[in-house]
């Protein structure tokens, strides 16, 4: 299987004069699941939006497989915090617009997916909609998947299923996942990165979350 590498550095983004992201370096390759943690306003979502091309940084260097690129929309799939699949679509239509023929069978090999296939997106519950969106991106042909708060609105059993899916799909993709549900992030990630004051801190183990002040003693 081919390994793909995404690397971003020298990112700079400010809102209303306040620097939100600066001095960021992040590298991820196929097979890895990077858990991106950080407090509210630390710049996690802004960074993911910049990587996915949904937001322009004042400065940014994005390289894919070693090549500098300004727009990687064909290579990166991004899960927004808000639902993004048009609600007037049926589940089947959204699937056919997003996936290649070779992915459809594997995508449908799931009880919940089969049960909602003919329904409209607007008819789905919050959890069903979120689960569908996550599954859609994890089966998407993109090499890199960025998941911003994927666990929002999911029941504990669905979270388990999502984590299992993230692990299995990471064999052919590089995945960055961020959420305030830190236990699930720690559980599913192969590597942890902490964002603090707009900067990335690469952690060698989860105890670094306490050392860097993200978690209190006893929270791990």
């Amino acid at each position: 299987m081919q390994t793909h590498v995404l690397e971003i550095d020298s990112v700079r983004k400010s809102f209303s004069g306040k620097l939100v992201v600066s001095d960021v370096w992040l590298k991820i390759e196929t097979g890895e699941i990077v858990g991106l943690l950080g407090r509210n306003g630390s710049g996690k979502s802004t960074l993911l939006k910049i990587i996915s091309g949904n937001l322009r940084g004042e400065q940014q260097h994005l390289r894919i497989d070693g090549k500098l690129t300004s727009d990687a929309k064909n290579r990166i799939a991004y899960l927004n915090q808000d639902n993004f699949v048009p609600k007037q679509f049926s589940v089947k239509k959204a699937m056919l617009l997003s996936l290649g023929d070779d992915q459809v069978e594997a995508f449908c090999d799931d009880e919940m997916t089969r049960s909602i296939l003919d329904r409209k997106i607007s008819e789905l519950s919050t959890g069903q909609r979120r689960y569908f969106e996550i599954r859609l991106l994890l089966f998407h042909p993109a090499d890199f998947v960025l998941l911003d708060e994927p666990y929002n609105g999911l029941s504990p059993t669905l979270i388990e299923e999502v984590n299992a899916l993230i692990r299995s799909r990471s064999k052919s993709k590089a995945i960055i996942v961020t959420d305030h549900n830190y236990r699930n992030i720690i559980d599913v990630s192969t590597r942890l990165v902490l964002m603090k004051e707009g900067t990335t801190h690469h952690l060698s183990n989860k105890s670094g979350l306490v050392e860097k002040g993200y978690l209190n003693e006893g929270m791990l």
């Binding site: 996915s52 727009d71 929309k73 991004y78 927004n80 993004f84 048009p86 617009l97 997003s98 993109a142």
Partner: peptide, 15 residues
């Protein structure tokens, strides 16, 4: 009303 929908299309390669 539907700004996040653009992310769906962007994921499918369209700005």
């Amino acid at each position: 009303n539907a700004k996040p929908e653009y992310i769906f299309y962007r994921n499918n390669g369209l700005s």
